[in-house]
Design a protein around this nucleic acid. Structure first.
Lengths: 341, 341
DNA sequence: TATGATCCTGTTAGCGCTCACAGATTCCGG
DNA sequence: CCGGAATCTGTGAGCGCTAACAGGATCATA
């Protein structure tokens, strides 16, 4: 049915065609100096005539500069991780890097061998998007095994580890969580509840700090899963309680779940209840009512993570951090507390 | 500052330790037959004592069975593509495959070399998630270059190409689009408008067929971008028109945009206007009002695409298609047309 | 013209693995 | 007790590339 696959053209084919040695071809495709302009042109011509494309496996095997990153994450379809991945991909492909992805199951515990075995080879560069236990652990394993080739992003508490600045691109949302909580307090709410995603996020710290500073004992955190549905379930009791007038949620999806639950409990937004999310996903602005939330530049963080990794790999000037800092965006799900009767 | 990187352990180290030849080690890690049980045990012990992990680059270079897939897509953060990618990843990592991803910019046109150059090597297996022009073209290039190692998924019209069954995992939504349109018609709507994503989707065919069969000339399609915002803008005029009572949207995000626009135009849902989406993303059920939409099993399609690819690569029994067929889920954004005054 | 420095190019080895094959050992029926 | 299969194991070559070095030109300087 199908013709025999034609043997792919190698560096030697190009070399023969251009009348040079294979090493010269190598120099040309790696933009090495010490090649005469005329030779370079000849080789380039041969390359395009033959449609030659270098073999990445051979390149890595031969120990050339590494041109791939493995991204570890626990879910590619959540807004935050998807955007971060996107940012990494943007920066990586612009730099000619290949992106591999490795999804870790949050339900599972991985051994060191299982994590390292997911790399294309020992010492291969990696970026960990760490938002939960499993990915955080993966980060620990990877950093221990090959500190020079791993960076991480995310919102786990372990950023307090010594030297974290060397390898962490943090989404500094603690401060803005604090600001958001203060904002709610300033609207007359007597306290602010927090609906948390699995894992410990710094934003939770910001929330409790703000309350404490206002002399308020933080109420018990409401634990939720990652899905809208789990948030709706988790918040069911809370939204039914007329005493609760302000809820901050770990991310926008959870906020949507809470809003849904509140709607079914017959509470009006923001009259009876103020709700705040995190992420500013595209839906937030188009939800009715518009969701008050925190703009988080995941894509920028992803890009920066890649730049930092590249810096560790290739040296060069320290890349400057370049993502928007988190900011509270007030829309229509938050407002003044109803005066107490 | 850092100690010298220890040289990674190779197959030869394991061989020496186990007192066998490197080839025997190779047999063990590849689960080849013709190895005595005792030898196998000895080698396995050596492997775990030394923490040996095979080098993927070396394996592919040496021409062993391929253990990686490159996924081409145009956006990793859209619900449909993210879920498909997730499905591919699930199946791939279960089968011990590495997933590489390559994001194509929809604004850009790629040459054959640019597409093929993104593969790890000539002939490397690939899956294309083709929902737009750019990815569809990438699919054409890849299929031409290496028909034995490329499958595609998605909703482009080119599924009508001869022999498509061999390499396409289709999301058969034409029929359900037709059913959805008929459903709206049966609710008394005089016609149904269609808000389209970029690229030509089969669901649009289903829509026009249903109208034609009912003796209705399909109204002009409203073109939209991929974002919620673009849909809101695109639909602004339409929702303001009291004659328009039913709109079908290319996906849920677009539907949310339309709903937002309708809200601002002061039209009540579903009293004045019925809106239907596609995808049944998690938000659809929690939107207020609940979005009538079509359940599309992207994850299942992704899994199947991988299985089909693997079948092409390794032979074996034809994998059976195993994803939920699309189904209309009626929620609260659709209902009977208001009786004409 | 000798003498080095500077530029360019080729040769060789080897990355870690799999393939194809060749040898060694065991087991069986005749 | 032998021939031949069946089972196991080792040897050699080579995948396509890069690193390290060894040359051969060419040029300015003495």
């Amino acid at each position: 049915m199908s013709a025999a696959e034609p043997k792919p053209v190698s560096m030697f084919d190009v070399a023969k065609r251009a009348g040079v040695s294979h090493q010269t071809v190598s120099r040309v495709i790696n933009d090495a100096p010490m090649v005469a302009a005329a030779t370079r042109a000849k080789v380039k011509a041969a390359i395009s005539e033959l449609g030659y494309r270098p073999n990445r496996s051979a390149r890595t095997l031969a120990g050339g500069a590494v041109r791939s990153v493995t991204v570890f994450t626990f879910d590619t379809s959540l807004y935050g991780t998807a955007e971060t991945l996107r940012g990494i991909e943007d920066a990586a492909s612009a730099a000619g890097f290949t992106v591999l992805i490795s999804v870790l199951d949050p339900e599972q515990t991985y051994t060191e061998g299982e994590i390292l075995g997911r790399l294309s080879h020992d010492g291969a560069p990696a970026i960990v998007i760490a938002h939960d236990e499993t990915t955080t652990q993966a980060r620990r394993i990877l950093r221990k095994a090959q500190p020079g080739a791993v960076v991480a992003t995310g919102d786990d508490k372990l950023r307090d580890e010594p030297g974290a600045a060397d390898w962490l691109v943090p989404l500094d949302d603690r401060l803005v969580a604090k600001r958001a909580t203060r904002y709610l307090l300033s609207m007359g709410h007597r306290t602010v509840h927090y609906l948390a995603m699995p894992g410990k996020a710094r934003r939770q710290d910001g929330w409790s700090e703000a309350l404490l500073e206002a002399g308020i004992e933080p109420p018990e955190v409401i634990p939720s899963g990652w899905t809208i549905g789990s948030a709706a379930t988790a918040a069911a009791d809370l939204v039914a309680d007329p005493e609760a007038t302000a809820i901050m949620c770990g991310n926008d999806d959870l906020a949507f779940g809470v809003l849904h639950a509140a709607h079914h409990a017959g509470r009006s937004i923001p009259g009876d209840l103020s709700v705040i999310g995190f992420d500013d996903c595209p839906m937030a602005a188009y939800h009715i009512p518009g969701l008050t939330t925190v703009d988080l530049d995941f894509r920028g963080v992803g890009r920066s993570a890649f730049e930092l990794l590249r810096h560790k790999l290739e040296g060069g000037p320290e890349p400057r951090t370049s993502w928007r800092s988190p900011e509270l965006i007030v829309r229509e799900t938050s407002g003044p507390a109803r005066p107490r009767s």
